[in-house]
Design a protein around this nucleic acid. Structure first.
Lengths: 210, 210
DNA sequence: CCAAGGTCTGGACAGTCGTCAAGGGTCTCT
DNA sequence: AGAGACCCTTGACGACTGTCCAGACCTTGG
């Protein structure tokens, strides 16, 4: 076999692999949309297929089984999930900036992506019953904790005061706050996001000494 | 019909009603046990019946349908759920007492009732997708918030300092802390409960000014 | 133009689900 | 003793599930 042929085959093979991966990503996106709408308990493969432009059989062409698909979904979900506040951290010039912008961003994503957040908490809970996703979920939660830590650390830096709570605790507290706001928001309470935007700066301020 | 007869019939009728309610409660207990073990998504009526001493048909004799059963379960769950720290609040003589005992009680129930707590978070999340339980779940959450408020209010009183955070925020923060500890505990992390017991007093102290 | 292989469809499968109804068993009252 | 209410079991139903597969479609290489 000539070198040219090998290169060609590599290129084709790579293109096929990429196409394969692209389709997987596309189907996983349909699955995520379905999951966000119906929740883990009520999502079936046929429903996912109906939210895509393919028939249900194709899912087993691209994924070994349902767990494989859902695991891929969880991993794909991560990418959207853990870089949300990076830009705000980078832009902030004062502690007051960060306080205000971070709170506003939390309230904004609560309003805009409520169904996706609802799905995240659903999947995190499923991982407590089924160990298939557990590793991936814990990894995402770790990165979310890191993401919050970046915010808090930068905040402490801007405020010229050391952080007074461990990063795991800071994440747990802010996540609790967000989850409660999500609960209220999805229950129809109009002021839920506004309440969150109000509460976050107060809590953030107590994360540093002084 | 004589008065004696009427009284007799009332007594019998009441006994039957009570027996009916008792059996409902018994079946709901079996259902709760099954739910705690398998989670909402994987719990079927036949599985519930197998965790009781009856066959699956009896469930439709005592409950109109699955939603009726699950709703009853949620309500029954409430009673166990919302009086957990009352005694500790009543006993505490100093703020330091309350801090220590409350944190110890949280860690203890995390260790002892992890599966039930996991179920609670599962059901609360389901209520975000299905509105059948929503009202009951929100009611329980409201009572849990009240329960936490009792602790915080008494703590502020003992510390002779006014509470510095709204009760909804205090609940959200402590709930987030607990949920994160539950996550770690069920993932096999041995120090999760101990970490919670350590973090709670620090957080509680920041709920009051000074 | 033909063969090959990647891609996709649609139907079939075995199993499980919630629901329901027919029937047997047990107890109480007349 | 017989009637009737209550309690429970069993088996069935249609719908839905995840999985698999035969075959059609389409692009590509020779």
């Amino acid at each position: 076999m000539t070198e040219a042929k090998e290169r060609t085959r590599d290129r084709i093979s790579r293109r096929q692999v990429d196409k394969f991966a692209d389709r997987r990503a596309q189907l996983a996106a349909s699955a995520l949309q379905t999951l966000a709408e119906l929740g883990y308990a009520r999502t079936s493969l046929r429903e996912i297929a109906q939210n895509s432009e393919f028939s249900h059989g194709v899912l087993h062409y691209y994924f070994a089984d349902k767990v494989d698909l859902l695991t891929h979904c969880v991993r794909q979900f991560e990418e959207v999930c853990v870089t949300r506040y990076d830009e705000i951290v980078a832009r902030a010039r004062t502690a007051a900036d960060l306080e205000r912008d971070f709170a506003a961003a939390m309230a904004a994503t609560l309003r805009a992506d409520a169904k996706m957040h609802r799905l995240w908490y659903d999947l995190r809970n499923q991982s407590l019953f089924e160990d298939s996703f557990r590793a991936d979920v814990l990894e995402i939660d770790r990165r979310r904790e890191e993401m919050i830590h970046h915010v808090v650390a930068r905040y402490a830096e801007l405020a010229s005061a050391p952080a007074a709570v461990p990063q795991a605790v800071a994440y747990a507290l802010l996540d609790g706050l967000f989850q409660q706001a999500l609960l209220r928001h999805l229950a129809g309470e109009e002021e839920a996001a506004a309440g969150l935007e109000l509460a976050v700066p107060a809590v953030l301020a107590r994360f540093v000494v002084g």
